[in-house]
Amino acid sequence: HERALMVNRLQKLTRMLRVHPDPKWKQEQQELIKRLK
């Protein structure tokens, strides 16, 4: 369940980064990718 939330968050971040590349979001995205591996 928590994994699904993280995947959701990651997808949302990816969409937001396409619109507005924010370093903070980029960092969070990298963190999520690490944790999901």
Rank of each mutant, 00 (worst) to 15 (best):
H20G: 02
V7L: 15
V19T: 13
R35V: 09
A4I: 14
M16I: 05
D22Y: 08
N8Q: 15
N8R: 15
K26H: 09
Q29R: 11
V7S: 02
E28I: 06
M6S: 04
K12V: 13
H1K: 12
Q27L: 14
H20P: 00
R3G: 04
A4W: 14
M6A: 06
L36R: 01
L5H: 15
L10D: 02
I33R: 06
R3A: 04
T14N: 12
E31D: 12
K12F: 15
T14V: 06
Q30C: 09
W25H: 06
Q27V: 06
P23S: 05
R35F: 09
L13H: 01
R35P: 00
K12I: 13
L17R: 01
Q27A: 14
K24E: 08
E31C: 11
V19I: 12
E2Q: 09
R9N: 02
A4F: 09
M16G: 02
I33L: 10
Q27K: 12
P23V: 05
W25L: 15
I33F: 04
V19N: 11
N8T: 15
D22T: 07
R18S: 12
K24N: 07
Q29D: 01
Q30Y: 07
V19E: 12
K24Y: 07
Q11T: 08
M16A: 04
R18D: 08
W25N: 04
W25G: 05
E2Y: 08
Q29Y: 14
K37H: 10
V7W: 15
L17P: 00
H1G: 09
K24H: 09
N8K: 15
Q29V: 14
V7A: 07
Q11P: 01
R15Y: 06
T14Q: 06
N8D: 15
H1R: 14
E2S: 08
E2I: 12
E31R: 06
L13E: 01
Q11A: 14
K24R: 11
K34M: 11
L5Q: 14
K26W: 07
M6H: 04
A4C: 15
K37P: 02
K26T: 05
L32I: 09
K34P: 01
Q29T: 07
R15M: 08
L5R: 15
Q30S: 08
P21I: 06
R9G: 04
L5P: 03
R18H: 07
E28R: 03
L17Y: 02
D22V: 05
M16W: 08
K37F: 14
P23M: 03
K34R: 12
M16K: 03
K34H: 09
Q11W: 11
R3D: 07
L13P: 00
A4P: 05
M6P: 03
K12Y: 15
P21M: 10
R9V: 05
R15N: 11
L13K: 01
L17H: 02
P21Y: 15
T14H: 05
K37W: 10
R35G: 03
H20M: 08
P23R: 04
K37Y: 14
R9K: 06
A4G: 09
D22N: 14
M6N: 03
H1N: 13
K24M: 07
L13C: 02
L17T: 01
L5Y: 10
R9E: 05
V7T: 03
R9T: 03
M6I: 15
Q11M: 13
L36P: 02
W25K: 05
E31A: 08
H20E: 04
K34G: 06
I33W: 04
P23L: 05
L10G: 00
Q30L: 13
L13A: 01
L10K: 00
V7M: 12
E28W: 05
I33G: 01
L17W: 00
E31H: 04
E2M: 11
R18K: 10
H1C: 15
Q29A: 14
W25V: 12
K24V: 10
L32Q: 00
